[in-house]
Design a protein around this nucleic acid. Structure first.
Lengths: 118, 118
DNA sequence: TCGGGACATCGACGTTCATCTATGTCAGGA
DNA sequence: TCCTGACATAGATGAACGTCGATGTCCCGA
């Protein structure tokens, strides 16, 4: 045999997720589920993506409203949901309100699901 | 100019998420949201984790029922939800049913949120 | 000081969801 | 052949959710 350097390839594909290494506690599940729930909506997914991909990493609500066929209160509601779980930061400048993605919060979620890099 | 080898360091922190590089399409959002919705429940998070962390990577329903203070049909319902979106594979052997995590599906989700490593 | 525009909050309405009890299906043992 | 145990399905119920129109709040310019 060849030095047994063969790291089982199947393991490298999608292993290392904290979710798979050991059963998560009830407390962790209760803490993480609301974050996923906030993301688990097509409109909020697009909102987060629109904000994150926007120039300077921030977007004005007025820009976001135009991207959807939804009423202004509805968009405001979705932004509030994302803000309350900490995925979006909010800053008011003059008359306008700017939202910005909380990259750390998003990275935490990704780390939980995916490869446990750090 | 100096060969322009300076990759903006701030980008390497929590960038590279497909979500942040460019706005995702409505179609992508509609396709991904149900996956996140399936995960966005404390019970289903723990179920996935229990199955994934179980010996041999698979778990019998009878084992899972005991881990919760919920009725057997409720657990069966949650397993069905996870199975229908492709996060859990299902195999019946004799009287027992075994579930197994679909690592590829989970990795896809992680790749969307986190670092875009492949 | 007033008016208008940007955004949030409120209250309502229909839909979806998590959970339960009751019942069905199916495989294996007596 | 019948019974028991493992798991799924069906139907019901209360809670949570997404969306809306109406209204409130706040800032700025005239």
């Amino acid at each position: 045999m060849s030095k047994s350097l063969e790291l089982t390839p199947v393991q490298t594909v999608a292993c290392c997720s904290p979710l798979m290494s050991e059963p998560i506690s009830t407390e962790s599940a209760d803490r993480i589920a609301p974050l996923l729930k906030a993301l688990a909506d097509p409109v909020r997914l697009r909102l987060l993506s629109l904000v994150g991909a926007h120039a300077d990493g921030e977007a004005c609500v007025c820009d976001l409203n135009d991207a959807f066929d939804l009423s202004q209160p509805t968009i405001s509601h979705h932004l509030k949901v994302l803000h309350e779980v900490g995925l979006l930061d909010r800053e008011k400048r003059g008359v306008w309100v700017y939202y910005r993605v909380n990259a750390a919060a998003l990275a935490d979620l990704a780390g939980l699901l995916g490869r446990g890099v750090r």
